[in-house]
Amino acid sequence: MDISTKQFRRCDLVKAEGRIDSNTAPEVRDAFEAITEDGRFRIVFDMSEVTFISSVGVWVLLETQKTCKRYNRGDLVIANVNEKIQHTLDLAGLLTFFRIYDDVLEAVGSF
């Protein structure tokens, strides 16, 4: 799957395109880890081009959130999650630990 990252002064932006399932979730995890292992813990995840995400994919986000929030250092926030994905994940309470923004600018500006 296509994953792009961009470093801003106050946060990093990660954008994934396509399907995040058990097959592709490790690629998303690697993209987040490259940022947190570099000591940066403020991340915006742009989901505008994500067409599908399973609980395994959300677990990658939750594990990244754990890393980001440890010692009160940072936050992983979500931008542009489409309605059907949000509705589905809300069924299982999977988005409880994330701030969600309607667009990337707003999300980046929150840091």
Binding site: K66, R70, A92
Partner: peptide, 9 residues
Amino acid sequence: LQELNCRGA
């Protein structure tokens, strides 16, 4: 958050 375990989701 730090105690969260997603098994079963």
